[in-house]
Design a protein around this nucleic acid. Structure first.
Lengths: 215, 215
DNA sequence: CTCGGATTAGAACGAACGTTCTGTAGAATA
DNA sequence: TATTCTACAGAACGTTCGTTCTAATCCGAG
C-alpha cells in the first residue's frame, strides 16, 4: 500500500465512523457533504485511488457498495454471549438455568473472550459472586464465574455445588470416593469437606472466572 | 415478536446470506428476483411487516439501508485486543511495555470482553501469572492480569509493583502516606507492607483478572 | 353467500445515486 | 518555457432504487 493523502485519510475516517453508526456505507454525495468536497467527481476520484491501493473495495453501479478491507472488520471477534442468571452466595441456593435461558432470554449477557471459551460453548451460563465466602477458590465479591451446566462432574474438576444439609453454596474441586464426595478447596492450605455423595448437588463445572478491578 | 410467514422467513434468510457474502444489503429488486416475487411492492409490503415486528430496521429513501436487528450482528462484538507481554512472578522483575508493544507487536494477544474494558482502552497490556505468590490478591497460577501502564497510582487502586530492595513483584492496593507507601493485600486477613515511597516501582494499575479453569 | 383483512400484481413516478465529460489550477518534470 | 501528472470543480446523463397507486386474488369470520 502506498502512502495516503490527507483527503483520502479524511474519507477513510468518515467511512469508518459512518459505518459503525449505521451499519451501511454512505453515498458518494454524503461523503462529499461530510468531507466538505465541492464535487462528487472528486469523491469518485479519491475512491478510485483508495481502491487501487487496496484500502477499500467497490461494486460498480451499486449504491453504497463500499467495503473496508481488513482492519475495521479484523478486530471484530466472534464471541460467545452467555446469560448472567443471577448471583451465587454462600448461604443462598444456586440459580438453576432453565432451558429458555440460553436462548434469547431477557437476562443480562456477557461476552466471553475466545481465549476462555471452551471447545463446546453450549450450556454455559454465568453467575455474579456475592460475598467473600469463596476466597479459598481465589474468587471474591463481584467476580463473574462462568459455569457449564451439568449434574455430574469428573474427578478433579471444579464445580459449583449446593450442600442441602449445610444450606451452603460453594466452589470446590470434586472427587468422588466410593459413597462420599470430597470437596477440595483450590487453596491447598484449606481443609477439604467430605460429605455423602447423595447430599451434594452439582450444578455445573467452573469454566472461567473474570474480575473487573475497581478503578 | 409475532409469528412470521413463509415469505418473510424466506426474505430474512436471503438478507442474511446476501449480507455475509457482500457485506451490504440487497436492493428491493434483488430481493424480488432472489425470492421469486413478482412485484417490488410485495417485497416492500413484507419488509414493512418485518420492520413492524422488529426483525429489521430500515432507513427511508436510502438504498439498501436494511439492518438486521440483533442476531447476526449481535455476536460479533468489537473487542480490544491487548498484548500479552510475558509473565509476572514473585521473584522476577515485571516486564516493561515498550511503546511498540501496543501496536502490531509480535506478542500474543488477548481479547478483553467489552464488559471488562475500561472507558479508555489505551496503554493496556496483560501478564500471565506464574506461581502462587499472589493469592492474597485472589490471583493464582495461570491467571491473566490486565494492567494499564502508568507510573503513578491513586490511593486505593490495585497496582502491580516491583520492590527493588526485596526483589519482589506483587499485586497490592496502593496508599501513599507521607514518605511511605502502604501496600494492602486485597485479602484483609493479610498484613500490609509499608515501605519508603522511593523504593516502590509502580508498573501499572490492575484493570481486570481472568482465569480459565482447567477442565 | 358476503364482507373485510391479508397478500399479491403491475406499473409508474420521482428521488437517489454512480458515472462520465469537460475544464481549470498547481506542482513536477524536462 | 513547454509538458505532463495530480487534484479539484461543475454539470449533466442514465441507472438504480424506494415508494406509491390501483387493482386483483385469496381466505376465514359472520
Amino acid at each position: 500500500m502506498s502512502a495516503i493523502s490527507t483527503r483520502q485519510q479524511q474519507i477513510l475516517d468518515f467511512l469508518r465512523e459512518y459505518h459503525t453508526d449505521r451499519s451501511y456505507m454512505p453515498s458518494i454525495r454524503e461523503i462529499q457533504l461530510a468531507c466538505g468536497i465541492s464535487s462528487t467527481s472528486v469523491v469518485d476520484y479519491n475512491l478510485r485511488l483508495l481502491e487501487r491501493d487496496g484500502y477499500i473495495r467497490r461494486d460498480p453501479d451499486i449504491s453504497r457498495a463500499i467495503e473496508l478491507v481488513g482492519e475495521s472488520e479484523a478486530d471484530l471477534v466472534e464471541v460467545a454471549r452467555i446469560p448472567v442468571l443471577g448471583a451465587i452466595a454462600a448461604g443462598e441456593p444456586i440459580p438453576v438455568p432453565e432451558a429458555s435461558a440460553y436462548a434469547g432470554g431477557d437476562h443480562d449477557s456477557f461476552a466471553l473472550p475466545p481465549e476462555l471459551t471452551p471447545r463446546d460453548p453450549d450450556n454455559l451460563y454465568a453467575l455474579r459472586v456475592k460475598g467473600y465466602s469463596m476466597i479459598d477458590a481465589f474468587v471474591t465479591d463481584g467476580d463473574i464465574v462462568v459455569l457449564r451446566h451439568t449434574r455430574d462432574a469428573r474427578n478433579g474438576e471444579m464445580v459449583a455445588a449446593w450442600l442441602p444439609m449445610q444450606e451452603e453454596a460453594t466452589l470446590k474441586h470434586f472427587y468422588l470416593e466410593g459413597e462420599n464426595v470430597r470437596l477440595m478447596p483450590a487453596n491447598p492450605a484449606m481443609e477439604p469437606i467430605i460429605v455423602p455423595a447423595d447430599s451434594v448437588q452439582v450444578h455445573g463445572k467452573v469454566v472461567a472466572v473474570m474480575r473487573k478491578v475497581a478503578a
